[in-house]
Nucleic acid binder design. Structure first.
Lengths: 117, 117
DNA sequence: CCCGATCGTTACGGGTCCGTATCATTACCG
DNA sequence: CGGTAATGATACGGACCCGTAACGATCGGG
């Protein structure tokens, strides 16, 4: 049972959600940061800098910086892996989970509004 | 006939599309720029800097800079309004229409993949 | 005509992000 | 041990974006 969505509906949805994100002002996340954040919260742990960089097809500094920024915002936390101290495990936070949940609500709400078009 | 989408589906969709945008690398558009671009291509012309700024809830320089960037990328064009030469009319381009269309395909394709989850 | 209002742009100081290259720390293996 | 590999972080130069404030161009009413 695939998710049915027509191109015109997809674009309307994309626009409305982005409009809300811009207007709320509280989402200064770039496309890269968004992809990283959602990967952390949707895929099974553990998450490492290298693993995320590989999944996104970007360099490690990009991930490190994104984690810096999202860490400042309280969306994620970093912890050294005690079994291999070279690794850093990225952990979820309450604030991050709330932000992701709010994004999901934003999308579903607008999807409902759009309906048949 | 509202568009049915569950929060978990919405997040998966959002992540997959952002992953593709990042991996393709050709979409360095910020949330603001995305909102502006889609507004230009979905809403009825004419579009002005002031009108876009008002719809997005941002200042005029933000729109001007976004148009600069997207103009360099060939996604939009500016033309002075001959009837009120203070105004600038933002116009669509073939490249911009193609980019928007590709985004729509990206979304609908991933929506189809996600299906019942 | 002229002066205020409106439009889009530009200037400025500060901040963030990028990619490349390099670094410090830690693990592994002979 | 010592040397290599791997991980994440950092330095650097350049580019972009932001918000505030100022600017030039243009319109329109008195």
């Amino acid at each position: 049972m695939p998710l049915e969505i027509r191109p015109s509906q997809a674009l309307k949805l994309w626009r409305q959600v982005h409009l809300d994100l811009v207007r709320d002002g509280q989402a200064d996340l770039s496309a890269r940061q968004t992809a990283i954040l959602l990967t952390i919260y949707l895929e099974l742990p553990p998450h490492t800098v290298r693993g995320l960089a590989q999944q996104l097809g970007v360099t490690k500094p990009v991930v490190t910086r994104a984690l810096d920024t999202m860490g400042k915002l309280g969306l994620v936390t970093r912890k050294r892996d005690e079994f291999d101290r070279r690794n850093v495990v990225i952990q979820r936070t309450v604030a991050g989970a709330l932000a992701v949940e709010r994004l999901a609500d934003l999308i579903t709400d607008h999807a409902r509004e759009i309906g048949g078009s």
